[in-house]
Computed example of a mutant assay.
Amino acid sequence: MLSRTAENLFWMARYMERAESTARLLTMGQRMAILPGATMRDEWRSVAQVTDCEEVFGKDAVIREADVVEHLILNPDNPSSIRSCLAMARQNGKSVRTALTQEMWESLNEGWRKLETYGVVEARRDFAELVDWVKNRAMMFRGATESGHLRNEGHDFLRTGGALERAQMTLRLLDVKYYVLLPETEVIGGHRDHYQWTSVLHALSGSRAYHHVYGGSYTPAQITDFIMLNRQFPRSVLYCFDQLAYRLQRLAHWHGQRTPANLRSEEMVETLSGADSGDIFRKGLHETIQGKLAQCNALGVEIAEAYHFG
């Protein structure tokens, strides 16, 4: 496979995953912002932090919902806005049109200009509808990919890009919310704490899955373990790391050569899977997450170097 084709597939999946993850994050931000005292906690700033756009708003400014909606949903000049991510996913898909199924292309192409018709007032009014629309586009793309795409090296590049982006967004979400969500004790003490922690699960579509694992018990340590370590939950960090190691091993097979990316992905799995229940929370959630984000960034660079991305 040509390096350019591989790069287009890799980034197409990343952009689709980023668009969906941003939509999920915005939903969580809105849920948190309606709680008493949310203005004092500046909940929307944490959303800006997790998407690396805090500096756009200024250090001392109070960030409002309208600001976030404009910048993270509608702004065509922000490369991480949902509008930009969907446009870039389509552009990458158009460049490798023959490598996609008809259904995959349709999921990228249909309605991709929808957000161009919205202003901030309309987007806030239709916030829930827009978020659901973005999530549905991403799910249609994944469904089309899983149901009809050949399991060749192009498929592995797609899945590698999606897994890397999902791991990073999950880590960022948990890290930025850490100081807001951490109660003074290990057990969630009040209604607001419970609502905030469960909002993280809700943003990751993990509420039902968490309940199957832990029942009605909600503690910061258990929720952290679930989001970081559960190998059966498809949005957990370890699940994504497992996928990265597996897909990169398949790519090594296709190309007849292992690369530094293989070694790093396997190390990422080994170090995280070795954690026991509660270890991450006790040893330092913020420090652990920053280390994993650094590993993800380094892995992205190694993948690009190994397969000669431009």
Rank of each mutant, 00 (worst) to 15 (best):
Met88Gln: 14
Phe57Val: 09
Met88Gly: 06
Val47Cys: 06
Asn109Ser: 10
Asn78His: 12
Lys59Ile: 14
Ser80Val: 13
Val68Ile: 14
Arg64Tyr: 02
Thr39Ala: 10
Met104Ile: 05
Leu108His: 02
Ser84Met: 00
Gly93Ile: 09
Thr101Leu: 06
Val68Phe: 05
Pro36Trp: 04
Glu110Arg: 12
Ile63Tyr: 07
Arg41Lys: 09
Ile63Cys: 13
Val68Ala: 04
Ala89Asn: 01
Ala66Lys: 10
Ala38Cys: 09
Val69Ser: 00
Ala48Pro: 10
Glu54Ser: 14
Thr98Gln: 12
Gly58Cys: 12
Leu100Cys: 10
Asp42Tyr: 01
Gln102Asn: 04
Asp52Ile: 07
Gly37Asp: 04
Ser95Trp: 08
Gly58Thr: 09
Trp44Tyr: 01
Gln49Asn: 15
Thr98Trp: 11
Leu108Cys: 04
Gln49Glu: 15
Thr101Val: 03
Val50Arg: 15
Ala48Thr: 11
Glu54Lys: 08
Phe57Ile: 09
Asn92Val: 07
Cys85Thr: 06
Val47Ser: 02
Lys59Val: 13
Thr51Met: 11
Met88Ser: 13
Thr101Asn: 10
Ser84Arg: 03
Glu54Phe: 07
Glu54Thr: 13
Asp67Thr: 05
Phe57Asp: 11
Ser107Glu: 05
Asp52Gln: 13
Ala89Lys: 03
Glu106Ser: 07
Val69Met: 05
Gln102His: 08
Ser81Thr: 06
Leu100Tyr: 08
Asp42Val: 00
Gln49His: 14
Ser80Gly: 14
Glu43Asp: 10
Val62Trp: 04
Ala87Leu: 00
Trp105Ala: 05
Ala38Gln: 04
Gly111Asn: 07
Glu106Lys: 13
Ser81Met: 06
Ser84Ile: 00
Ala99Ser: 14
Val56Phe: 13
Trp112Gly: 01
